[in-house]
Design a protein around this nucleic acid. Structure first.
Length: 878
RNA sequence: GGACACAUAGCUCAGUUGGUUAGAGCGUACGGUUCACAUCCGUAAGGUCACAGGUUCAAAUCCUGUUGUGUCCACCA
């Protein structure tokens, strides 16, 4: 009847299925057949950088988001998942510069701005195409009609508009400040783009000159050429007499003017307790200088070299100048002490070059300026409040604290970068005149600011720039897509960019549209290799998601990134895990194949009428299990517990359904069973779809149902048998009984041909159990006859056993002795457990304080255990 | 220096608000199996839940401290 192969071949189906999904149009919320009042559900895809093809971290992101999207689509939401990519300004420029230098030995200055940018696009556009293709291979149900790019025309417009708006509000300003400067990238870096490397350094203690009273300590003597003050603690008795005095002195041949100031920030116990203040080359010193109105002397230039007018030091590198100064100090007898300490060296997070703090004219976003449209609050306070008050929730919750702490310490954000690839700042100069405008001035003579914007400036606008802002924002009102889909439901991203990206999105959304960009932030961890190492190209331990998809199928790759993973925690992934997920996919495949092969009439999939008048214990059991599954999976998905959802699905599918119910159906063959199997298969496919969309779609196509699986409704809990919520006999007991018989057969190495006769003493359950004789006899138990009696004695010397409240004994040929050691072990364990439990049940405090249902439960448990122990003892004696 | 997380079976990890004899996958051992699936089925072994206290009738779970591992933030002149 069906042509399905014994093993699922993902490659054979995936590409064609994706094309059909695209053709259906259901990735686009506008095409979903929904009533107008249907609620919206939006996720914007965190745009991957176009520097490189996707890695497994991206694959994890896609698996999680697509699971959310497909679940909500099935739930009847007007679901939008909006795709895009990020130009990743500095990262991209570095990658391309490096590549060009390796291939052609030229720097960007050799090409010039226009030609260099042309080269960047030449490199990057094919990568972008690859990325989009990879996303499709994962099966992501993104609305491609709304595809965006952080540097496409609409986003360029949005960025310029934002800049101008912020400038008009006075939030963006230009100012001179000490910034983190990378001499290699020739650009500023934001505070959080600076990495720290621990290193051993020499701390030099010396005096500037013989006539200067206070020795100071530093690891960077060369910057001392720019000192304009020495700071001490106000209460430091050693230096009281000098505070406020100014000295003119000669420092290694260079003139310095040093004022002695007092500030509480100085640590009395470090070094000599006195700090040489270098306003131009240290951020903290610069802040001191602002506070005490100190002059600033610049001694290091943008290439990291010592500047002019510094005599013998001019033009030297910082390291060479340091050596020379130390030599000079030694010569003059001013060097007091050299000691080795560990300290942190600031380096560029992109290229690892040592950062030079330099004063420079840059553009900033003020985080402290009160903003009228935010009710007088600053970006910082507004963005702080929305998290503090719970308007935005972080999952896991602990990240709220990290966010709040970061916000609390936030300084003005330097947004100008001295690189070429990116959004050029929309500011033009003509002499002293300055023009901030969305469009270039038409009159001649204006020169545009050569700098570009920090990449997070454009990605910070991602939730609303992708929904048509600023066109969809008129007179303080949202229109079109912006009105329909903003705020988005959830931002799903890696915890590593919580501060870099998430915080900026919140600030920019509050500024632009006066509302939060999303209600929830779900943060996933990193994907590590099998040994817990970060995957990286240089280590060669990275797994390529597309290669994995080709080997095991997209469904398996997706599952492996969801199972065993908890929010905010890193996870390890190796091929064995993907393989086991592939096996699960194949299991579902075969379940589908089998059920399809035994269904006499596929009409059941369409009309869906279940006749439940003639159900057996097993039927009701599996339907209840399935009901529980529906509730559990829904509940887990609502709470972002993907792993638990997938595990619940796996346990039901593999164990309850395949290992038990399908096997039962082979014995208790009936029309009801076919119908129940059909019902479960159909709805199970819907439940699995968020996790493994491809294989479920292939099987769905075999059902002969007209509706598309993409929009098939999430299953409802089925009413099974209202008058009997509680079964007389728990089916679990039947399963345990069968398991025990199998165990005995296995221990005795019995061949299937060796039949046994079994008698079960079932007490009050004798009648109910009698109905299940056929199952007990035939479910791979190898029993010739099964007799069930209510009361009786286990005959002396027979092979006996017990399960829960049942005792049983077996007779048969070729029965060898049972495993005594194992039995004794079991008896010992059970005895200990019984002793513990009876002690508790005799404890008056437990009886008076524990809730009644717990006590009752414990009591039944004790009775059952005691019966089981008795049976085990008889078995041992036989 | 500040903060956060983690420590549970050989390995990778679950364990929801305290309440069955602490679970799963992989691995291991034993047994089975051609009629949906060897990408299969059954059974078993294996854990002082890092350590020490405390709260409670009851702690892997809550509190305090200790040790170890990892991450983030700040940054030392």
């Amino acid at each position: 009847m069906t042509e399905l192969a014994p093993t699922y071949d993902a490659k054979k189906y995936e590409a064609a299925i994706y094309q059909r999904w695209l053709a259906s149009g259901f990735f686009n919320p506008d095409n979903l057949p929904l009533p107008p009042e249907a609620p919206n559900y939006t996720i914007v895809l965190p745009p991957p950088n176009i520097t490189d093809k996707l890695h497994l971290g991206h694959a994890a992101m896609l698996a999680i988001e697509d699971a959310l999207i497909r679940y909500h689509r099935a739930k009847g939401y007007r679901t939008l998942w909006l795709p895009g990519t990020d130009h990743a300004a500095i990262a991209t420029q570095n990658v391309v510069e490096k590549m060009l230098y390796q291939q052609e030995g030229k720097t960007r200055y050799d090409y010039g701005r226009t030609e260099f940018l042309r080269r960047v696009w030449e490199v990057v556009l094919p990568i972008q195409t690859t990325i989009l293709d990879q996303i499709k291979k994962m099966g992501a149900s993104l609305d491609w009609s709304r595809l965006a790019f952080t540097m496409d025309e609409p986003r360029q417009k949005a960025v310029r508009h934002m800049f101008v708006e912020m400038y008009k509000e006075g939030v963006i300003y230009r100012g001179e400040r000490v910034v983190n400067w990378c001499p290699r990238c020739q650009s500023t870096l934001a505070d959080d783009e600076v990495d720290y490397r621990e290193q051993m350094a020499t701390l030099y203690t010396f005096k500037y000159s013989p006539d200067f009273p206070i020795p100071i300590s530093t690891t960077r003597p060369e910057t001392k050429l720019g000192d304009t003050a020495v700071a001490v603690h106000p209460q430091d008795e050693r230096y009281q007499e000098y505070i406020g005095k100014t000295y003119s002195l000669d420092f290694c041949g260079q003139p310095l003017t040093i004022k002695i100031i007092a500030d509480r920030s100085v640590d009395r116990n470090f070094g000599t307790g006195a700090v040489g203040v270098t306003p131009a080359h240290s951020l903290t010193d610069w802040q001191l200088a602002e506070k005490y109105n100190l002059p600033m002397v610049k001694v290091i230039d943008t290439d990291g070299l010592l500047g002019d007018n510094l005599g013998q030091f001019s033009g030297l590198s910082t390291l060479a100048a340091r050596d020379l100064i130390v030599a000079e100090l030694k010569k003059r007898g001013l060097l007091i002490k050299e000691e080795t300490i560990t300290n942190n060296l600031s380096v560029c997070y992109r290229c690892g070059t040592t950062i030079e703090p330099l004063p420079s004219k840059q553009w900033f976003v003020s985080v402290d300026k009160p903003i009228t449209r935010l009710g007088g609050r600053s970006l910082k306070t507004a963005a702080y409040e929305v998290a503090k008050t719970g308007q935005i929730k972080f999952i896991p919750e602990r990240f709220t604290k990290r966010y709040l702490e970061w916000m609390d310490n936030l300084h003005d954000w330097c947004i100008s970068r001295q690189i070429w690839f990116g959004h050029q700042i929309p500011v033009w100069y003509q002499g002293d005149e300055i023009l901030v405008s969305e469009t270039a001035p038409t009159s001649p003579g204006w020169i545009q600011d050569p700098d570009t914007l920090d990449t997070w400036f454009s990605s910070g606008m991602w939730t609303f720039s992708t929904l048509g802002w600023p066109d969809n924002w008129q007179a303080g009102h949202k229109l079109g897509d912006l009105a329909r889909f903003h705020p988005t439901e959830v931002l799903e991203t890696g915890y590593d960019i919580l501060t870099l990206w998430v915080s900026r999105m919140i600030m920019m959304s509050l500024f632009a549209v006066g509302e939060i960009p999303f209600y929830e932030v779900y943060l996933h961890g990193l994907v590590l290799d099998e040994h817990g190492q970060k995957m990286s190209k240089s280590k060669g331990n990275g797994l390529d998601p597309v290669a994995m998809i080709e080997l095991y199928g997209a469904d398996a790759v997706r599952l492996s990134l969801l199972i065993g993973v908890t929010p905010g925690n890193d996870c390890r992934l190796g091929t064995t895990k993907i393989e086991s997920c592939r096996n699960l996919v194949n299991k579902l495949w075969n379940i589908g194949r089998y059920i399809l092969s035994i269904i006499p009439d596929k009409a059941i999939f369409v009309h869906n009428n279940l006749d439940l008048s003639q159900t057996t214990l097993a039927d009701r059991w599996i339907l209840r299990q399935f009901n529980d599954l529906i509730s559990a999976v829904s509940n887990y998905l609502e709470h972002y517990e993907f792993s638990l959802a997938a595990e619940a699905l796996r346990d039901f599918t593999w164990h309850d359904l395949a290992d038990w119910y399908i096997e039962i159906s082979k014995i208790e063959d009936s029309k009801e069973k076919c119908n129940i199997l059909a019902y479960i298969l159909k709805h199970l496919l819907i439940l699995w779809q968020p996790f493994m969309p491809f294989v479920t779609q292939v099987l769905w196509d075999e059902l002969g149902v007209e509706d598309n699986l993409l929009i098939a409704s999430w299953p409802q809990v089925l009413k099974i048998n209202p008058e009997a919520e509680q079964e007389e006999l728990d089916f679990k007991l039947v399963q345990d009984l069968i398991g025990e018989i199998r165990n005995i057969r296995s221990l005795n190495h019995l061949q299937p041909s060796q039949k046994m006769k079994m008698t079960i003493i079932a007490g009050q359950w004798a009648d109910a159990l009698s109905k299940e004789i056929k199952l007990i006899q035939n479910l791979r138990t190898g029993l010739e006859t099964v007799t069930i009696i209510a009361n009786g004695q286990v005959p002396e010397g027979s092979l006996a056993g017990a399960v829960g409240p049942f005792s049983f004994y077996l007779e048969g040929e070729a029965m060898s002795a049972v495993n005594h050691a194992q039995l004794e072990h079991k008896i010992q364990e059970l005895t200990a457990a019984i002793n513990n439990l009876s002690r508790r049940l005799n404890d008056p405090e437990f009886l008076s304080k524990a809730p009644e249902h717990i006590i009752a439960k414990e009591q039944t448990k004790l009775t059952n255990w005691q019966a089981e122990l008795e049976a085990l003892r008889q078995q041992l004696n036989s």
